[in-house]
Protein backbone atom coordinates (compact mmCIF):
# COMPACT_ATOMS: atom_id res chain seq x y z
CA UNK A 1 0.00 0.00 0.00
CA UNK A 2 1.16 3.45 -0.89
CA UNK A 3 -0.13 5.84 1.71
CA UNK A 4 0.62 9.49 2.19
CA UNK A 5 2.16 10.86 5.34
CA UNK A 6 0.49 14.03 6.60
CA UNK A 7 1.73 16.28 9.38
CA UNK A 8 -0.51 19.00 10.70
CA UNK A 9 -1.62 20.77 13.85
CA UNK A 10 -4.94 19.47 15.10
CA UNK A 11 -6.45 21.32 18.05
CA UNK A 12 -2.97 22.55 18.99
CA UNK A 13 -1.48 19.07 18.90
CA UNK A 14 1.14 18.27 16.30
CA UNK A 15 -0.38 15.25 14.60
CA UNK A 16 0.83 12.81 11.99
CA UNK A 17 -1.24 10.34 10.12
CA UNK A 18 -1.18 8.15 7.04
CA UNK A 19 -3.95 8.41 4.52
CA UNK A 20 -4.93 7.51 1.00
CA UNK A 21 -4.73 10.38 -1.46
CA UNK A 22 -8.38 10.16 -2.36
CA UNK A 23 -9.47 9.83 1.24
CA UNK A 24 -11.54 12.71 2.50
CA UNK A 25 -10.19 14.80 5.33
CA UNK A 26 -13.29 13.76 7.25
CA UNK A 27 -12.49 10.07 6.91
CA UNK A 28 -8.88 10.73 7.88
CA UNK A 29 -9.87 12.64 11.01
CA UNK A 30 -12.34 9.96 12.01
CA UNK A 31 -10.55 6.79 10.95
CA UNK A 32 -6.85 7.65 11.02
CA UNK A 33 -6.72 10.21 13.83
CA UNK A 34 -9.66 8.93 15.88
CA UNK A 35 -11.45 12.26 16.16
CA UNK A 36 -15.07 11.29 15.56
CA UNK A 37 -16.63 14.59 16.60
CA UNK A 38 -17.12 15.62 12.98
CA UNK A 39 -19.88 13.47 11.49
CA UNK A 40 -20.75 12.35 7.99
CA UNK A 41 -24.37 13.23 7.30
CA UNK A 42 -24.22 13.38 3.52
CA UNK A 43 -20.67 13.18 2.16
CA UNK A 44 -21.48 15.88 -0.40
CA UNK A 45 -21.16 19.15 1.51
CA UNK A 46 -24.90 19.61 1.89
CA UNK A 47 -25.44 19.07 5.62
CA UNK A 48 -22.49 20.63 7.45
CA UNK A 49 -22.25 17.87 10.07
CA UNK A 50 -18.56 17.50 9.26
CA UNK A 51 -17.75 21.21 9.60
CA UNK A 52 -14.22 21.88 10.79
CA UNK A 53 -11.87 24.84 10.54
CA UNK A 54 -8.91 24.26 8.20
CA UNK A 55 -6.27 26.99 8.12
CA UNK A 56 -8.72 29.40 9.67
CA UNK A 57 -11.53 28.63 7.21
CA UNK A 58 -14.75 26.83 7.98
CA UNK A 59 -15.11 23.94 5.56
CA UNK A 60 -16.94 20.65 5.13
CA UNK A 61 -14.26 18.06 5.85
CA UNK A 62 -16.03 15.63 3.52
CA UNK A 63 -15.15 17.81 0.52
CA UNK A 64 -11.44 18.19 1.26
CA UNK A 65 -8.84 15.58 0.44
CA UNK A 66 -6.84 14.43 3.44
CA UNK A 67 -3.42 15.29 1.93
CA UNK A 68 -4.53 18.91 1.66
CA UNK A 69 -4.13 19.16 5.42
CA UNK A 70 -0.37 18.61 5.21
CA UNK A 71 1.36 21.50 6.95
CA UNK A 72 -1.97 22.99 7.91
CA UNK A 73 -3.89 23.77 11.05
CA UNK A 74 -7.17 22.10 11.93
CA UNK A 75 -9.71 22.92 14.60
CA UNK A 76 -12.42 20.42 15.43
CA UNK A 77 -15.15 20.35 18.04
CA UNK A 78 -12.88 18.30 20.27
CA UNK A 79 -10.59 21.31 20.62
CA UNK A 80 -13.27 23.86 21.28
CA UNK A 81 -13.19 23.78 25.07
CA UNK A 82 -10.15 25.12 26.83
CA UNK A 83 -9.43 22.18 29.09
CA UNK A 84 -12.40 22.02 31.44
CA UNK A 85 -13.61 25.44 30.41
CA UNK A 86 -16.27 25.13 27.78
CA UNK A 87 -16.44 27.62 24.94
CA UNK A 88 -19.34 30.04 25.53
CA UNK A 89 -21.11 28.52 22.53
CA UNK A 90 -20.94 25.09 24.10
CA UNK A 91 -22.31 26.45 27.37
CA UNK A 92 -25.02 28.32 25.54
CA UNK A 93 -26.05 25.26 23.51
CA UNK A 94 -26.41 23.29 26.74
CA UNK A 95 -28.36 25.97 28.57
CA UNK A 96 -30.69 26.75 25.68
CA UNK A 97 -31.37 23.03 25.03
CA UNK A 98 -30.17 23.58 21.48
CA UNK A 99 -29.47 19.93 20.82
CA UNK A 100 -31.89 17.07 20.64
CA UNK A 101 -30.21 14.09 19.03
CA UNK A 102 -26.88 15.94 19.02
CA UNK A 103 -25.44 14.54 15.80
CA UNK A 104 -25.44 17.89 14.02
CA UNK A 105 -24.21 19.76 17.10
CA UNK A 106 -20.44 19.58 16.45
CA UNK A 107 -20.95 21.05 12.98
CA UNK A 108 -23.19 23.83 14.26
CA UNK A 109 -20.68 24.70 16.97
CA UNK A 110 -17.88 25.02 14.44
CA UNK A 111 -20.01 27.11 12.07
CA UNK A 112 -21.14 29.36 14.89
CA UNK A 113 -17.59 29.75 16.14
CA UNK A 114 -16.45 30.78 12.67
CA UNK A 115 -19.32 33.26 12.47
CA UNK A 116 -18.62 34.91 15.82
CA UNK A 117 -14.93 35.23 15.07
CA UNK A 118 -15.79 37.29 11.99
CA UNK A 119 -18.90 39.00 13.27
CA UNK A 120 -19.17 39.32 17.05
CA UNK A 121 -22.56 41.01 16.95
CA UNK A 122 -24.66 39.22 14.34
CA UNK A 123 -28.36 39.82 13.83
CA UNK A 124 -30.79 36.89 13.94
CA UNK A 125 -30.88 36.90 10.15
CA UNK A 126 -27.10 36.88 9.91
CA UNK A 127 -26.97 33.93 12.29
CA UNK A 128 -29.56 32.06 10.26
CA UNK A 129 -27.68 32.56 7.01
CA UNK A 130 -24.32 31.76 8.60
CA UNK A 131 -25.60 28.39 9.79
CA UNK A 132 -27.66 27.66 6.69
CA UNK A 133 -25.04 25.16 5.57
CA UNK A 134 -25.74 23.07 8.65
CA UNK A 135 -28.85 20.93 8.67
CA UNK A 136 -30.70 20.12 11.86
CA UNK A 137 -33.79 17.98 11.60
CA UNK A 138 -34.71 17.93 15.30
CA UNK A 139 -34.94 21.47 16.60
CA UNK A 140 -36.41 23.70 13.90
CA UNK A 141 -33.29 25.83 14.56
CA UNK A 142 -35.07 28.10 17.06
CA UNK A 143 -33.02 27.14 20.08
CA UNK A 144 -29.81 26.94 18.06
CA UNK A 145 -30.24 30.51 16.84
CA UNK A 146 -31.01 31.65 20.38
CA UNK A 147 -27.89 29.93 21.68
CA UNK A 148 -25.66 31.57 19.08
CA UNK A 149 -27.12 34.99 19.80
CA UNK A 150 -26.77 34.37 23.52
CA UNK A 151 -23.17 33.23 23.24
CA UNK A 152 -22.36 36.26 21.08
CA UNK A 153 -23.75 38.57 23.75
CA UNK A 154 -21.83 36.70 26.40
CA UNK A 155 -18.61 36.92 24.43
CA UNK A 156 -19.04 40.63 23.76
CA UNK A 157 -19.57 41.25 27.46
CA UNK A 158 -16.73 39.05 28.49
CA UNK A 159 -14.32 38.82 25.59
CA UNK A 160 -11.24 37.75 27.49
CA UNK A 161 -12.63 35.34 30.00
CA UNK A 162 -15.09 34.13 27.38
CA UNK A 163 -15.27 30.54 28.38
CA UNK A 164 -16.69 29.75 31.77
CA UNK A 165 -16.16 26.78 34.02
Amino acid sequence: MNRTHVTCMINDDETEFLCDNDESLLDALRDEVGLTGAKEGCGTGDCGACSIILNGQLICACLAFAPEANGGTIETVEGMADGDRLHPLQTSFLEEASLQCGVCTPGFLMAAKALLENNPDPTETEVRYAIAGNLCRCTGYDKIVRAVLGAAAQMRKNPIEGARP
Binding site: G45, Q57, C60, L63, A64, A111
Partner: peptide, 9 residues
Protein backbone atom coordinates in the same frame (compact mmCIF):
# COMPACT_ATOMS: atom_id res chain seq x y z
CA UNK B 1 -22.83 29.62 -3.92
CA UNK B 2 -23.63 26.97 -1.33
CA UNK B 3 -22.96 27.64 2.32
CA UNK B 4 -20.16 29.51 4.07
CA UNK B 5 -18.39 26.16 4.23
CA UNK B 6 -18.67 25.75 0.45
CA UNK B 7 -17.71 29.35 -0.25
CA UNK B 8 -14.48 28.88 1.63
CA UNK B 9 -13.52 26.25 -0.95
Amino acid sequence: IGSDQIQNR
